[in-house]
Amino acid sequence: MKDIYEVVLHGRAGQGAKTAAALMAHAALANGMYMQAFPEYGAEREGAPMRSYLRISKREIRIHSGVHNPNLSVVIDTGLIYEPEVRHEICGSKEILVNTNMSPKEIKKELNFKGKVYVLDATKIALEEFEKNITNTPMMGAMIKIYGKIPLDILKKEFKQKFERKFNNDLMKANMRAINRGYEEVH
């Protein structure tokens, strides 16, 4: 479907791939677009590889099956690029965004991928900003930059709304910095 922008996020349960997709969907709706975001799990526990899907469109989205051959594949957990199933899936997409300290050229070579590769050292940002390897926040900043049709401020606003009860001031600021850094540092 050409009029639907599709994203697959690959992560492990507990890393926030589901929340990242959901927040992007919130931002899309706030920006006046139709959206859909849902997870697909393997084993029901932390650490098991999982996917979450995101669709954004100007018209109502009625399809309810998983996304294949998306516009963008996002890999939140670096190690997943070595999992054969994940590898196969991400190579079917038009563009890839990987959380890694390798360069786009190295990733392209590693995956033998013909499309555009974006990288972001989200683990470094996460460990620096909140000392935990929860990389979905900087990755969201990067995704918004790559998609290009939703202003970053809308995402930040949705994030604040969702988490203001859960996070204290410092943690919220750290997350905002992480989103900003994701936006600035993706390349």
């Binding site: 959206m35 975001a37 989205i61």
Partner: peptide, 12 residues
């Protein structure tokens, strides 16, 4: 409602 598909899917 369909488990995971509808229950965990964000929609407007």
């Amino acid at each position: 409602q369909d488990g995971f598909i509808t229950s965990h899917g964000v929609e407007p």
